[in-house]
Design a protein around this nucleic acid. Structure first.
Lengths: 171, 171
DNA sequence: ATCTGTAATGTTATAATATAACACTTTGCG
DNA sequence: CGCAAAGTGTTATATTATAACATTACAGAT
């Protein structure tokens, strides 16, 4: 059997203009489906945190989420947000961007992909998630050679997105 | 001209048994050479911080470094350590492991490699630095397709090293 | 050898991120 | 309903990192 390595692809392309409200609806809808299917409880706090992350259209920090929640009612204490984030991370609904201490939504939680890789614009803080089978394979073979058993992997590529290069300034 | 993609290799292999005191000597020696060559000032604090990182043989946090410095004299305030770390990072003498908020020594600061990739044992916290041209190339082509201009990249692979798998417990 | 400007360090305070521990409430289910 | 488990609230605190300003050390010019 011949295997063809497919072109790596963006899970979607947040750097391009798009109707972001549609992203949010889709994400929430698929999150609800996933939770129902797996018996996870997508409580109000959890749902609202997920929405806020999607609405921001950027990597969003825990305390930024707290601020937002504060604006729309009683400001909860940090553990509330961190617990919601833990849940969402577990469920695969968000990713943590270590280099930013911030979180982004994941729009394909169903896929049991090997690794997610991220293009992070340092100007606009938009983050694009990438899947790349070639990198997956190379990482796997690397680890195997070292007899290293992988549990997680994170590739964070920081730089400037096309849009910010063109406008030559931070947004 | 035919190019052969070389096997990716560990910059050295900290998972294997070795005379670590030799690592430390080599690292310090090459650091001094590099600083002399580039007109960097490897002051006492900076040198001692670099030594401590190498001596620990693991990823070491800023406050762990502070503790150590405290044990051998007057405990400095955090900025002292963070400044030393900033210098060492700039000089390419250490790397920051984002997923651990910790630092490891780099033993080949002369190489202007594209990216460094890390195998991080979650049990013993030993970190191995890897260079892999195939990943470099794949990342570069990925970014080019998106017209994304890269300034930094970090691939952190977490899991269990061979030794910890065999002994089946954390060290 | 002294002066002088820059780089490095010291010092104090505080910001930003994250979690521990325990009390209380909600929810699904028998 | 009543119970157990899951989720949330609350208070306090741990951990990581930086801002701002004062002081000291150092390399190069005179």
């Amino acid at each position: 059997m011949r295997t063809v390595t497919p072109m790596p692809k963006l899970a979607s392309n947040p750097f391009k203009k798009h109707q972001h409200s549609q992203c949010i609806r889709d994400a929430l809808h698929s999150a609800e489906g996933l939770c129902k299917k797996n018996g996870f409880r997508l409580s109000n706090v959890r749902k609202r945190v997920l929405e806020l992350i999607w609405e921001s259209h950027q990597a969003l920090g825990a305390y930024a989420i707290l601020e937002q929640l504060g604006k729309e009612g009683v400001k909860p204490a940090p553990p509330t947000v961190y617990r919601a984030l833990d849940f969402l991370l577990e469920a695969g609904l968000v990713h943590r961007i270590n280099s930013l201490n911030a979180y982004i939504g994941c729009n394909h939680p169903k896929d049991s992909h090997h690794g997610s890789y991220f293009l992070i614009c340092q100007h606009c803080h938009i983050v694009a998630e990438i899947h790349d089978k070639r990198i997956d394979e190379e990482v796997a073979s690397l680890a195997e050679r070292e007899r290293f058993s992988i549990s997680e992997r994170a590739l964070e590529i920081s730089g400037t997105c096309q849009h910010c290069q063109e406008t030559q300034h931070a947004r």
